[in-house]
Nucleic acid binder design. Structure first.
Lengths: 199, 199
DNA sequence: TAATTATTAGATTAGTCAATCTAATAACTT
DNA sequence: AAGTTATTAGATTGACTAATCTAATAATTA
């Protein structure tokens, strides 16, 4: 009796997901045919559908993967000494990610699809809740150490920081003059003035 | 020799555009079939394609229409006495628009499509350039009257305000707890701290 | 080695799509 | 009224789609 080799299985899934990410970013979820993903991944539809029963499960897996990556980033971040600096560092990471058009496209595509497909909407909302929760925890920690203004509501501020993150990815789509790596200074100014202890 | 009645012609275009806006917001550009737009507008494909030769020209017309609407808002705004208050008022208008899920969906859909289709990308970039230009003019006017901090770069700040606007529309998509009409206070706090003259 | 099952290819299916075509009708001009 | 052209309906086209099916092959175990 033959068994599934989990490593090989995972590697094949990776191959498909990477191909799909490239395609979805370039042509959108609905604009990409499964045949295109097959071609990019170098396999037949029979093979592709062996690993993912529907096209929908492919994008769902991509969204779930992003959730894990975000959680990983925050796990490291919480250990920092200066938590406001940690927040600024996180925002630099976001700007770096936004510099990759594939990533920005994908973020937008997922947001757009979240409004159309309830299943993707639920997954995206879970990702967002986790991001906001982590941001709020960071802000609360920073407030308790007087690294930021204690009077600002952490949950409300976290929500607006999340909005700014969304905005960064949208900028890449509609503003050809927006170069993420040149925008760090103004972003830090914005966040510092918003959050620093008020004299 | 019969002539085109421009009013009737425009009315028919409106009918099609309104139907298309509803459909695109609900199911996305690629997810909407021309047959669905026909059904929503109550007409045959022959009729629809008489007014718009391709599906692409429909979304292009929608984007162009938004540009005109934005320009109209700013035309009124520049006449205000307190220009920073005018900016805050404009952001309230944005929050109001974002409260309409159709509008938010459409904004996201256009941004996503802008990354895929160069023609839409160019139109969206033109819209954005106009928005940023108007915001920067407002900021410069406010700075010259000492209503905001004179040391902040107007173009850079305008770009980040545009990012926040994008972020607002994305929030509606991924954050079910984001209710635009409850968020005015925190947004005003953010902008005030960012822009007010520093003591 | 034989049995078992995972993996793969590629043809196929049933349906959808944007856009075209034909033809009929409605409205305007002279 | 006659001529002209705008407007409309609806069938049709050819291409494409997600997903299935059949069958062959490869890898593993007993």
């Amino acid at each position: 009796m033959r068994k599934v080799d989990p490593e090989k299985h995972a590697a094949k899934r990776r191959l498909i997901l990477d191909a799909a990410i490239t395609c979805f970013a370039r042509k959108g979820f609905h604009g990409t045919s499964t045949a295109e993903i097959c071609a990019k991944a170098g396999m037949s539809p029979g093979n592709l559908f062996h690993y993912f029963p529907t096209k929908h499960t492919i994008i769902a897996a991509i969204v779930e993967e992003e959730r894990q990556e975000t959680a990983e980033i925050f796990r490291k971040l919480g250990e920092a000494e200066d938590l406001f600096a940690a927040l600024l560092g996180f925002m630099d990471t976001i700007l770096e990610l936004a510099g990759d058009p594939t990533y920005s496209s994908l973020a937008l595509e997922i947001a757009a699809e979240a409004m159309r497909d309830e299943r993707i909407g639920t997954l995206a909302a879970a990702n967002d809740a986790e991001l906001q929760g982590a941001l709020a925890a960071l802000l609360r920690g920073a407030a308790s150490r007087n690294q930021i203004d204690r009077t600002v509501d952490a949950d409300g501020a976290a929500r607006w920081i999340a909005a700014i993150i969304d905005g960064i990815f949208s900028r890449v789509a509609v503003d050809p003059g927006f170069k993420p790596k040149n925008e760090g200074a103004m972003l830090r100014l914005l966040l510092t003035r918003f959050l620093r202890p008020q004299g």
